[in-house]
Amino acid sequence: MHLDHHHEAPAAVSADARRPDGTRRALRIGLGGPVGSGKTATVAALCRALREELSLAVVTNDIYTREDAEFLLREAVLPPERITAVETGACPHTAIRDDISANLEAVEDLEDEVGPLDLVLVESGGDNLTATFSKGLVDAQVFVIDVAGGDDIPRKGGPGVATADLLIVNKTDLAPYVGSDLARMAADAKAVRGELPVVLQSLRSEDGVREVADWVRERIAAWTA
């Protein structure tokens, strides 16, 4: 990308890989998905798994604004100065896709104020299956669905399920209780996603976020290579 331009200029205009001082900015990963699928719980679990090895921060986008941030604070996964809540005017998909300016400012401010950072997780507010992140905002995106939302979601597809860099099928522990067929969900996901990875996880189990954390580690390694 634009490695050597705008060095003396203030604030990058879009997703430049370099910060104004020439250093490499943090990797940005977006997490989206329907309401209640476990985005915030996944973010919290990732923070716990990675905070010893990476310098981390989180931006939340929620139609109820501070609730997700407050959940993360209550769970004490990160110090409060590493979590920023962005108000979206009841339109979380606009804030992560169509008009990313507030989110860009939030990630840049976090790098300025608590940096240097290795990773910023940008969590979307709960939205519908068509919500995806702009490439101007994040370098990779994770889409989180859960077994209780219906085992036909992977088959139905949609931009999030089909194109996200990682699909998480969450709450696998609930499958027997809600009558969801995990094997079928995995097969349907493979059909719409081809080679793109899918992780089935339950955060209730010991180290339940390990596979996703490993995927993030690979991304970080590729980003800093």
Binding site: V86, T88, G89, A95, D98, D99, S101, A102
Partner: peptide, 11 residues
């Protein structure tokens, strides 16, 4: 109104 300058989040 879709000009991406953040206005959508302000009332």
């Amino acid at each position: 109104g879709r000009f991406p300058a953040g206005g959508h989040a302000h009332s």
